[in-house]
Design a protein around this nucleic acid. Structure first.
Lengths: 144, 144
DNA sequence: TTGTTCTGGTTGCATCTGCAACCAAATGGA
DNA sequence: TCCATTTGGTTGCAGATGCAACCAGAACAA
């Protein structure tokens, strides 16, 4: 194997990084403009919203690729705003089960339009449907 | 226009975010394992390496999509390690011109193999050359 | 010229992240 | 059983980031 990536590889790499920061910036500033909390809150709430019986902290961490100590404090903030609740886990005495609250769901509903709009502007409106599919397939091969 | 992105769009969006965090994690941990500084240092040094006469701070900021206050302190750290120097800009009394030092270039050379290797593992080895090109083209359409 | 506005850069403060140490419960031998 | 190891989660501290305020020089208008 060659010792260094090809020029094309480097170009693709760099562009992905750049696109990501641009997206990130667009999302966060749109949320802020709407006086909504940061994107990470949305991600947690969405994961929880899908699971009627909540999730263990480590499960959220795995899904979000977030280190546990980081997640622990993120949940502190969410809990302080009464968007989630932590209750002792029945199946494991160490852990706890995290549930979304009613106002957590409400916040989710308020955030989605803002977030979704940015997704449309940054992605959907710039590619054809076929291109989006191709992109998704390629990114899928890069995962994990 | 519809009020919410299609499912495919959302899938592509989510995958890009995920791929990005995975890459980020891989790079940073590889650098750390090799006792090298974080990726941002590499980016700054690389930009400077390309310009014989250095760059203004705001130019670096534009290229890296980094807010100025953030860059200001990043350069503080680099300067403290003698990897760059700031000198008063001749063309603008407010600003300064940032130059890479000799040991800055040396560091760049030590970081590249580690970084490049991750790029190969995460991207080059997972896609064919044609796929890489397709990906780069699609990402290019998403830029700016 | 003079005053206003804009731009490049820095700094103080609050928030967030990463790291390492820690605690307690669970797991897995011997 | 008992002890060592692993796992889920929290916390203290240091480093990094975001935000707003600030300063000085540049640009521009009257």
């Amino acid at each position: 194997m060659n010792t260094t990536p090809t020029e094309h590889t480097i170009a693709a790499w760099a562009r992905l990084l750049r696109v990501h920061t641009q997206w990130q910036e667009r999302v966060q500033s749109a949320l802020k403009a709407a006086e909504l909390p940061p994107l990470a809150w949305y991600d947690v709430l969405l994961e929880l919203h899908r699971k009627r019986h909540g999730l263990r902290q480590y499960e959220i961490g795995e899904r979000m690729l977030l280190p546990k100590h980081n997640l622990s404090r993120l949940l502190d903030r969410l809990e302080k705003e009464a968007l989630v609740t932590r209750r002792a886990s029945p199946e494991d005495g160490r852990g706890n089960r995290v549930l979304i609250t009613r106002s957590g769901r409400r916040l989710l509903q308020r955030m989605w339009p803002v977030y979704g709009r940015v997704i449309q502007e940054c992605l959907e409106q710039r590619l054809t449907a076929a291109e989006v599919t191709t992109l998704a397939k390629l990114l899928d091969k890069l995962q994990q």
